[in-house]
């Protein structure tokens, strides 16, 4: 197969969640001369875009999306170590993402992470129930462009307010943009606390982050 056909096939494998086929295909694509960037942007990113559309149109539900994400990560395990410093993907915007302190619901965060990874951003995943201070420290240490937090539980919304307060207090804005999401949040709430953006779901989050970085 040509590199182009391999990329096409890899994209299909991610969309269909054929998890065992992802690694060998990514290796084949590299061997056939496809660069890591091309594999990320022309195969994986495209595939996650399609997965997002299928989720929006209710052809896919969470299990299929999670499986596609796992499949993409398999390919990334092969491709990412091959990235050369200074390449387009290496210098892509950096996103610190996490579930705020007090909440352990992280499926939504993981989907957003997968979509943003698919879109080519460098992601620093702070996991769930993450103390506000750790989140801010990571933003500073990595020189991140975006801090993305999620909360499903109303009582933990206060932590998002706290993040905004610290970002302002430490003069990290406007270099660092904040985006929030999750079941307990609304667009109104984001505006109220001074967050730069809010997204309804992971698909919208990709668009919103793109706009924030303009």
């Amino acid at each position: 197969m040509s590199a182009e056909e391999l990329l096409e096939k890899l994209s299909d494998v991610v969309i269909k969640g054929k998890i065992k086929e992802a690694k060998p295909l990514a290796e084949e694509a590299l061997a056939a001369g496809a660069s890591p960037e091309v594999i990320i942007f022309d195969a994986l990113s495209k595939a996650m875009g399609v997965v997002g559309q299928k989720y929006e149109s209710k052809q896919y539900f969470l299990p299929q999306v999670l499986l596609a994400a796992q499949t993409m990560y398999q390919a990334l395990d092969v491709v990412l170590p091959q990235l050369k410093a200074g390449s387009a993907a290496d210098t892509a915007a950096k996103v610190v993402i996490g579930v705020v302190e007090g909440d352990v619901h992280d499926i939504g965060k993981n989907i957003v992470k997968a979509m943003l990874t698919g879109a080519g951003y460098t992601i620093f995943d702070m996991g769930r129930d993450c103390p506000t201070k750790n989140m801010i420290d990571k933003v500073k240490a990595e020189g991140a462009n975006i801090v993305a937090t999620s909360s499903l539980m109303t009582p933990t919304l206060a932590a998002m307010k706290e993040i905004e307060r610290i970002l302002a207090e430490e003069n990290l804005k406007p270099q660092v943009k904040s985006i929030i999401g999750g079941g307990a949040t609304t667009k109104d709430f984001a505006a109220q606390i001074g967050a730069d953006a809010w997204a309804y779901d992971a698909v919208e989050a990709v668009e919103v982050v793109k706009n924030l970085l303009k």
């Binding site: 969640g17 998890i19 299990p63 299929q64 999670l66 499986l67 499926i107 993981n110």
Partner: peptide, 11 residues
């Protein structure tokens, strides 16, 4: 784990 349970609905 809910995420694993959801994945296993397919696998």
């Amino acid at each position: 784990g809910t995420e694993d349970l959801l994945l296993m609905m397919i696998t």
